[in-house]
Design a protein around this nucleic acid. Sequence first.
DNA 1: TCGAATGTCTAGCGATGCTAGGATTCGCAT
DNA 2: ATGCGAATCCTAGCATCGCTAGACATTCGA
Lengths: 192, 192
Amino acid sequence: MSVQERKQRERADRERLIVATARELAEQQGWDAVTTRRLAERIEYSQPVLYSHFRGKREIIGAVALEGAAEMASAVRAAASAADGPRARVTALALAYLDFAERNPAVYDAMFRLDGGLAFAHEDTPEPLKDAFAALLESLGEVAGDGVHPGLFTEVFWAALHGLATLTRAGRLPPQDTGRRVELLADRLAVL
Amino acid sequence: MSVQERKQRERADRERLIVATARELAEQQGWDAVTTRRLAERIEYSQPVLYSHFRGKREIIGAVALEGAAEMASAVRAAASAADGPRARVTALALAYLDFAERNPAVYDAMFRLDGGLAFAHEDTPEPLKDAFAALLESLGEVAGDGVHPGLFTEVFWAALHGLATLTRAGRLPPQDTGRRVELLADRLAVL
DNA sequence: TCGAATGTCTAGCGATGCTAGGATTCGCAT
DNA sequence: ATGCGAATCCTAGCATCGCTAGACATTCGA
């Protein structure tokens, strides 16, 4: 029995290695540079090994996206819980979100820009994605205002953050004004 | 002289044909299906002809993006001018923007999701892109509120719209709630 | 009418995601 | 310890991608 367990452990290790390497490579040189050949070379295995873990490149991107969603959820929660009061909580959350997107552009792309083959809308949405949304909802729901569905409010706020993250990374919005934009968002959207 | 003029006209016609065909193909089957071979076949020329008009596939995407920007600008202006008062203007503008994104997903992708090789932030930003932003600014600037830079406000509002468009297309947000989200955005962000 | 210039196509390069099929290694029963 | 079956891994290759060199045809100007 212990032999099989060791093998399973090694397999799981290798799978983590693949995801971590893909992420590292993507952050260093962009997702275009993450080819199956380069990835295989970096993990010191041949290409087909990748396909014994993942159905294809898309699924690898999806795995990175899930990892990123978990990290983002915890980053958002940490920032929110460190702030006092609804107002500070909202701005802290927003800044944490944008900070995560800026520090992990490739991961953010995997989550929202690229096709990771993830089911988003339906019930079979992976847990990390639902949890990341829940992390936003926890802090944003309390400032939705009367008569506004917390989920709907969170979606709109999230959309605004996503737009800011995307456009900033595209060079469209100068990064130094991020603080003022977040202030504007929090002042106007949130009901305090 | 008239011979050269005819040739130039034919060349310009063919260039328009390339862009229109690329756009059509992208809307029908997605940008992944827009390969240089398929595109060449559809316009009934060989691949190298494409490269006598554009530096590469990126530039073709960029051309579609510019065409889309011009259309979006006029769609936004039309919607805004047909509405009475700032409040109605803002919601009409927002709905027109989202409607454009929904009806022309491939064009919207070319504008914001894909790499069309367009210079965005700098001064050499192509005129249609600047004009599309200007179309937003015209209506949104008047509801920025006191002490808020109209450009900054427009950026934030635009980011929110962009996020809504993106997330809706990804299947993350149910389309039937678009109206309520727009109402929320207009109610909260705009100062009337 | 003929050389030159312009325009177009055929063929091919390197690289991509992905896979079939053979080789090798490994665990386990004898 | 040994030999066999199975699991594991790699070599080699396919179709397709964006892109380009060089041959071919066509048209223009003298």
